[in-house]
Computed example of a mutant assay.
Amino acid sequence: MSFMNSEEELQAWLRLTLEPGVGPVTARQLLAVFGLPDQVFAASVSQLMKYLPQKLALQLAGAPEPGIQALMNKTFEWLARPGHYILTLADPLYPKALFDTHDPPILLYVDGHPDVLALPAIAMVGARNATLGGSDNARAFAKYLAAQGWCVVSGLAHGIDTAAHEGALQAPAGTGSTIAVMGTGINRLYPAANKNLALRIRDQGALISELPLDTPAVVHQFPRRNRIVAGLSKGVLVVEAAKQSGSLITARLAGEMGREVFAIPGSIHSPLSRGCHALIRQGAKLVETAMDIQEELVGAPGSKVKAGTGGAMKAGAVPGPGNDFVPDPEQRRLLERMGFEPLSLDALVNDLHIDVSQASSLLLALELASCIVRLKDGRYQRVR
């Protein structure tokens, strides 16, 4: 299911992510100009050609190709099963922390419990060919942090990822949880050896992906997966990593996003310590116990994190037309009523006498156009 979108609206969201030639940047620019996806597909060819090549404008103005329609139909069949969700940028359960990235996914496929996306998260990554000691460390750190209320985010890979998920699942029920970000379609489990682990994650946490159903494991997709791992989290812990490692890409992305980067040191003779040592030389925080991370991100030992402490979208975080954006009458009315003081969604709904769905759609369009920002406490503020 999708929480805020009708079937027709969700079809438009899906189509926007499936159309050949429409990448994430183009999709966000179209949303900033036209509003919601159904308005993109309702636009005329001449309107679309102001922002797109003629061939692509004709493609979007027409009906979807049979292959795309078939994939949308299959997606709705998947969505009808228990525990399956699609969260679009317009959904209230879409993780706020991802809005603090320069390219948040247009939508997320979720298998499991979408509410865990609201928990404050810590990412744990490392070598696929981890040592026994490295796996033990990852498992112990994850169990401790999950017990303190953290959601442990990783990528379901062999080695450190597997140990991190396992450790989080060992924490007492009702504390933290774990999220596996997949580099495949949500219905394509990779690696197959982690099937049982994935089922446990689905039951106690969530599997998520931004990729369409049936997308296979392809190397170039995993850095995009890694940006979601980093974006969801307040910090990234690298447990073991060689000098050339995908885990270092996740750490670099985290640093660029303003997240904390932590690394566990190891033997100077171990190749799997060199990546961590390189990160520490570059400014990552050296940690020896999970409590070091808890103290750095929260404060006093034993103080548990609270849900809703993730980052909020910043002005200009999503590329848009900037000052070229011209709000429609309903968007202009909302902006005028907002003024420049922070207001809650409920206050705007009551003041404008509109329903929550309509208000959310207007706010999303204005947020994508960098006219407003969503604050950490959930309120909205006009910035221009």
Rank of each mutant, 00 (worst) to 15 (best):
I201P: 00
R202T: 02
N226M: 04
G176W: 04
R227M: 01
V218C: 10
G185N: 07
A198V: 07
I179C: 07
I186Y: 09
R200G: 01
G183T: 08
A192P: 11
G205N: 04
L213Y: 11
A193E: 09
R224A: 13
I208P: 09
L189T: 12
G176T: 03
A193H: 08
Q204H: 14
R200M: 11
Q170T: 14
D214P: 03
R227L: 03
A180P: 03
P212S: 04
G167V: 07
R200Q: 11
L213V: 15
I201S: 03
A180D: 01
I208Q: 06
T175C: 10
E210D: 12
P212G: 08
A171D: 04
L199K: 14
L199W: 10
T178P: 03
A180C: 02
L211Q: 11
R227E: 09
A192M: 13
G174S: 10
A217L: 11
N194D: 08
S209R: 11
R202Y: 06
Q221G: 07
N187C: 10
A173H: 04
P216K: 10
A217M: 14
E210A: 10
L207E: 01
A173E: 12
L199G: 08
L211E: 11
A198Y: 05
Q204W: 10
E210K: 07
P172T: 02
A206F: 00
Q221T: 15
K195T: 13
I208N: 06
A206H: 02
A168K: 00
Q170K: 15
G174F: 12
G183Q: 04
G185F: 06
P216H: 13
L199F: 12
M182N: 01
T175D: 07
N196H: 11
F222A: 07
P191M: 14
V219M: 15
F222P: 06
P216M: 13
S209V: 15
M182R: 04
L197Y: 04
Q170F: 14
S177C: 02
R227F: 05
H220Y: 15
L189W: 07
G167Q: 07
T215M: 14
I201V: 15
F222D: 07
P172I: 05
M182C: 06
N194F: 05
S177R: 01
L197M: 04
L211C: 12
Y190C: 08
A206L: 05
N196R: 13
N187A: 08
A171P: 04
A198D: 01
N187K: 07
L169S: 05
I201Q: 00
A173I: 10
S177K: 01
I179H: 00
P223A: 05
A193M: 09
A206V: 04
R200D: 10
R227T: 08
T178C: 13
D203G: 02
A193C: 10
P212R: 02
N187F: 09
A168T: 03
P216L: 14
A173S: 09
G183P: 05
S209D: 15
V219F: 14
G185M: 08
V181P: 00
A198N: 06
E210H: 11
G176C: 10
R225Y: 07
K195L: 15
K195N: 08
G174E: 08
L207Q: 05
A217D: 13
V218K: 12
